[in-house]
Amino acid sequence: MPPKPQNFKNPIIWFFVSLVVLWAAPLFLPTFYIYLITEILIVSLFAVSTNVLLGFTGLLSFGQVAFFGSSAYAVSLLIKGTSLPFAASFFLSVGISTLAALIIGLFCMRLRGFYFAILTLAFSQIFFVVVYKWTSLTGGDDGIVGIPKKPFLFFDINGADAYYHFVMFVVMVSLALLYLIIRSPLGEVLQAIRDNSERTEFLGLQVRNYRLASFVIAGTFGGVAGALFAPFQGIVTPELLHWSHSAEPLMISLLGGMYFFFGPIAGAVIFVFIKEWITGFTEYWMFWYGLLLMLLIMYLPGGIMGFVSEHLKRGKDDSR
């Protein structure tokens, strides 16, 4: 049974404090860490958006790369192939993800559990095949290389620090929006569906439509993450759309705690640092990551946040 989400106090203050701290980070951190934090921010947004489905609606989608990847490809093609300003390319690409999520979502809503997971996976693999095979448009196996960081509106975002500030701003706004959605009546209904969909249906709510809304929200913000990712890496390849890549945000949510809004963010921090740390002395970091996840599912299915909050609660009970 998922724990009751604890409303955390003064979210607005926290939002501005983290905004200021993150904004100032390049002043005291070397470029390498700025690069890492940029990656963490993008991965966090992808994971939090996926977790809207996994943790807050109770739907396991193995196809989220379809939205991340289609927007990453769309933004790359628009930047390289047209003279549109970056802001227009950016929002157009996110729009493509939203549309894709709406269309795929309409099909997927009739299934649950394992079958839903495989259906979303199959749809995302069709995206993969199209990108992989449509060589004249997408460059096929070689992907699209040399994606420049064009100015966003009046802001020059070329360079590690400048692009970091851009990513930070977009991710923070997106996370704030997602937080508001999860705390809104819509978010409450989604969590009710997760806990007991029949009972929610009996209340007269159209479970199907709410699930679809959740799917479109997840796809849209996955698309935002994808559109940020392409210029960050400067390259997109079909591998980005392969189904095994869909597991990444799921694993990160699980690692951090999928019943917590901030779980996937904690998970993303740990994931990126583990990757950097273990790759320092072995290239076989996936083994250790897999082992960690296996042990986590066996002993701490609530993830890191679940473990921490349980201990905090226990501490409080003891002191009473």
Binding site: L60, S244, M251, M286, M294
Partner: peptide, 26 residues
């Protein structure tokens, strides 16, 4: 590992068996 999660959701089971893939592949 699997014996621990027979009563859990398909989602967790899929994710656990995915962690096997990571380990076996590496």
């Amino acid at each position: 590992p699997l014996r621990k999660i027979y009563e859990r959701s398909h989602a967790l089971q899929l994710l656990m068996t995915f962690s096997f893939i990571l380990m076996i592949d590496d």
